[in-house]
């Protein structure tokens, strides 16, 4: 049987309403994907729109190839549905099941239509399966793409969020580093630190590495690069927040921190910075 002989378009057109009813009932009773489901109204609306788009695509001659221009509206609709589900936190399985679950009501209808014509029924079911599988895979693809986009965006946001430069005092800025320091981040850190040094007119920058889990030779090199750049601008750097383990690692690795001042805590580094800038914080005598 040639795909062009398929009665699928005609069957769908004639029995659209019944298939929709069956499909909705099946989706609402299905065990899969009900733990996080769309509201019933939304589901009905989406199912109806999908069936309509499918019907139009089939009428336009789309049977086995969903890449063609005639299937563009159908693809667009599915893409939108998949993107929405990805953003709402559905699993890929739940997303694809939305399409795959159409098989049951559709096959049921086909069985009624073909009656005892077993060969015709088998061929028609194969055609329908092929079509629905392609559509299901397409939703998974879009879902994956949307997820990747979300992850990329979050990474970017994390990168921007995680490097605040704070002004501690007149002429003193601090840069609390959190997380691993790789080349890309060093670049961002360096740029924002230097910008702030110019803006605030800071002569001392404290780089606090309390939140950096490990310091290896590469991280140390990145740190030293930042220190060197700040020095070129005319600001001294103090590295603070060096935990005992990190001090041990630094010495074991033979990392040469040069003549950069280092302190165990941010408070200690701040005291040093104040002294270097000729300032002091004293206890107020009236404050008791």
């Amino acid at each position: 049987m040639n795909v062009n002989d398929s009665r699928l378009p005609e069957i769908l057109r004639r029995n659209g309403a019944e298939i929709l009813t069956d499909w909705l009932r099946y989706q609402q009773s299905a065990p899969v994907g009900r733990e996080k489901a769309l509201r019933d109204g939304e589901l009905r609306e989406q199912s109806r729109a999908f069936l309509k788009a499918l019907e139009e695509a089939l009428a336009g001659g789309v049977i086995s190839d969903i890449e063609g221009a005639a299937a563009a509206p159908l693809r667009e609709f599915l893409g939108e549905a998949a993107r929405a589900r990805a953003r709402q936190g559905f699993t890929p399985g739940q997303t694809a099941t939305f399409v795959f679950s159409l098989k049951l009501p559709l096959f049921g209808r086909l069985r009624q239509e073909y009656g005892s014509d077993a060969a015709g029924l088998a061929a028609e079911i194969w055609t329908a399966t092929e079509l629905i599988d392609q559509l299901g895979l397409y939703t998974t693809e879009i879902y994956q793409k949307t997820r990747d986009e979300i992850i990329a965006r979050q990474q970017q946001e994390l990168l921007e969020l995680s490097t605040p430069v704070v002004k501690l005092w007149e002429g003193i800025v601090a840069l609390p580093l959190i997380g691993t320091l790789d080349s890309a981040r060093t670049q961002v850190v360096m740029e924002s630190l230097l910008q702030q040094i110019v803006q605030i007119g800071a002569s001392i920058a404290i780089i606090d590495i309390t939140g950096v889990p490990t310091v290896d030779t590469l991280v140390a090199q990145h740190l030293l690069k930042t220190v060197a750049a700040a020095r070129l601008m005319g600001a001294d750097c103090i590295i603070s927040g060096i935990r005992p383990q990190i001090a041990q690692t630094i010495v074991h690795l033979g990392v040469e921190l040069g003549n950069v001042a280092t302190r165990a805590t941010l408070a200690d580094a701040f005291r040093l910075a104040l002294r270097r800038t000729g300032q002091a914080v004293v206890k107020a005598e009236t404050a008791r």
Partner: peptide, 30 residues
């Protein structure tokens, strides 16, 4: 040497020139 732009500082560091032995300051006054 005073008033180096951030982009210039980054470039020099990436070139491996940290100008050891040169004093630096943020602006002319400093």
């Amino acid at each position: 040497v005073v008033g180096m732009q951030p982009s210039v500082a980054i470039t020099l560091v990436e070139l491996g020139l940290s100008l050891r032995g040169v004093r630096t300051a943020l602006d002319v006054e400093k």
